[in-house]
Simulated assay, not measured.
Amino acid sequence: MEVERTFVMVKPDGVQRGLIGEVVSRLERKGLKIVAMKMLRIPKEMAETHYAEHREKPFFNALVSYITSGPVVAMVVEGKSAISVVRNLVGKTNPVEAEPGTIRGDLAMDIGRNVVHASDSPESAKREISIFFSDDEIVDYAKVDEDWVYER
């Protein structure tokens, strides 16, 4: 079984609305494994690095301002096809277009307050994980239910 790691963040709106547990619960109920998690207030420099691909876009400063406005919960999530599985659980970026049953489809109303961020590719996942976590903060462990989640 090929396991992937991806980056997930509950954004300031999700934290303020008390949705951390809901997001974590949905990830875990799916069968994904959280291998790192922390709450932090993102410094401006870290936010600019995280959103570097948007630097030249008109919404960049507003994005940095928003993501640094309050605490977030950053996670490394692991599982088979974790990147695409998490993206499907999260739903489309614009909650108006997100399917019911997805995190954004169920819990968000506005693209600028869409509760959660999730890496969109293996390259993004690797880069984003390295921004928020050092290697020694990621815990490698086996869950007792893995034989019930994955066919071997």
Results as ranks from 00 to 15, higher is better:
M1D: 06
M1W: 04
E2P: 09
R5W: 02
F7D: 10
V8Q: 12
M9N: 03
V10P: 14
V10Y: 10
P12C: 04
D13C: 06
V15C: 07
Q16M: 09
Q16C: 05
G18N: 15
G18P: 06
L19M: 08
L19Q: 08
L19N: 11
L19W: 03
G21K: 14
V23S: 09
V23I: 09
S25T: 07
S25R: 15
R29S: 15
K30L: 10
K30C: 13
K30V: 04
G31V: 01
K33I: 05
K33L: 07
I34Q: 12
A36R: 03
M39C: 06
R41H: 06
R41Y: 02
P43K: 14
P43T: 11
P43A: 08
K44H: 03
M46F: 01
M46R: 14
M46I: 13
H50A: 03
H50E: 03
H50K: 05
Y51S: 01
A52F: 00
H54K: 05
H54N: 02
R55A: 01
R55M: 00
E56W: 02
E56C: 06
K57I: 13
K57G: 08
P58F: 14
F59C: 05
N61W: 12
A62Q: 13
A62I: 06
A62E: 15
V64A: 01
V64H: 01
S65I: 11
S65H: 11
S69C: 05
P71F: 02
V72M: 06
V72C: 06
V72Q: 13
V73P: 09
A74S: 08
A74E: 04
M75Q: 09
M75S: 11
V76I: 08
V76L: 10
V77R: 11
S81H: 07
A82Y: 01
I83S: 10
I83K: 05
V85Q: 12
V86R: 11
R87V: 00
L89H: 05
V90P: 02
V90R: 02
G91R: 03
K92C: 01
T93Y: 00
T93V: 08
N94E: 03
N94A: 12
V96Q: 10
A98S: 07
A98M: 03
G101P: 06
T102G: 09
T102N: 06
R104F: 05
G105S: 03
L107G: 14
A108G: 07
D110I: 15
D110A: 11
D110T: 13
I111N: 01
I111L: 04
G112T: 09
V115Q: 08
H117G: 04
A118S: 09
S119H: 00
D120M: 00
D120L: 01
P122V: 02
S124F: 00
A125I: 00
K126E: 12
R127L: 13
E128K: 04
F132R: 12
F132C: 14
F133G: 12
F133V: 15
D135P: 10
E137V: 06
I138L: 07
V139G: 15
A142K: 14
K143P: 14
K143D: 10
D145P: 03
D145W: 08
E146Q: 08
E146H: 07
V149I: 12
R152K: 13
